[in-house]
Computed example of a mutant assay.
Amino acid sequence: MSSKSIFFLLGCLSFSLCSCQNPGKLDVITDLPSSLSENSGIVSYDGKTIWLIEDSGNNDNIFHVDFNGKIIKHLDLKNAKNKDWEDLTKDHYGNLYVGDFGNNENHRENLVIYKLPNPEQEKGDKIKSEKIEFRYPEQKKFPPKKSKLYYDAEAFFHWGNSLYIITKNRTRPYDGKAMIYKVPDTKGSYEAELIGEWFLCNDQNRCSATAATISPDGKTIAVLGYGTLWLITDFEFDHFYKGSVKQIDLGLRTQLEAICFIGHDTLLLSDERSRATGGNLYRLQLSKILKPEPNTKGKP
């Protein structure tokens, strides 16, 4: 057995109430525009279109894209700068949140989440934004030593009156741990509250969190990695990561960096384009991959 296979097995066994699943099936909805090759976050308001962002080095825009891969509209964000936009989420009021917290080298001291009104209701080509600035109080050095590189982030979701951030581990050697932080969803400057640590697994290529989302009913949290999906149910806030966790191999090894729910049973996912791979919008029906195994025991 290879070292990667051993690490994967250990990672599965390390989950509380975890069960490793058979590979899920992603259905391709459309090829995303080549101009949006570095897409890093998606949300959907109507289940028929998505709003999309790109990460560092790209414009300060959000893009409205339909399921045929056509850009319907783009909006410029006022009072915002794309330092490293990494994820999107929305609240029950329709407000949109842009996570500008990409921090590959762990040296940033200007982390921010931009809060926007519902972009579906914007008639012009610009949209206002408010700043939710924050810092990780546990980080004392910028950057910290290699064994403490916990302060990059590409994943968050909204629930209640808070934004929950799941950090992307870049430690060397890699220890598989994500830090879970919480910040208020209103304009201001905050110290993020550390609410827990979550061990994902020992394989950095699969087990670094790249996006997150929560179902509209608040009963399922989905966390995405490069080809891996974690579904969390039967949890209590704020320690949701202690709930029942199912790890699913998506059977894909592209740069998956965006995820959102439409309804309670369907996920949309997208990946960055790299040469001839990726750059797609996918659909995943949870009911198809979470079917219980047929019970043949005791049958004649």
Rank of each mutant, 00 (worst) to 15 (best):
L281V: 09
P143C: 06
R108Q: 13
F134K: 00
P137Y: 09
I289T: 14
D217A: 08
N22Q: 15
K182Q: 10
K242C: 00
R170S: 06
G278S: 11
E193L: 11
P292D: 12
L17W: 12
S129P: 03
P294Y: 03
K288H: 15
C207A: 14
Y150F: 15
D84P: 13
K78H: 02
S287N: 04
S162R: 12
L281M: 01
S35E: 13
D31K: 15
F156Q: 09
F7S: 09
K126F: 12
Y136P: 03
F8T: 13
D55R: 05
G69S: 07
K131G: 03
K288T: 14
F157I: 07
S2V: 04
N118W: 04
N106E: 06
R135Y: 02
F156H: 11
S215Q: 10
D175H: 04
I53P: 09
S3A: 10
I221G: 05
T89I: 10
H264T: 14
L77I: 15
K177P: 02
K146L: 04
A209N: 00
L77F: 03
V223R: 01
C12D: 07
E193T: 15
D60R: 15
G94F: 04
D234K: 09
E272Q: 11
Y282W: 08
T220N: 03
G102V: 12
P143K: 01
W230C: 05
N205R: 08
L231G: 00
D27S: 10
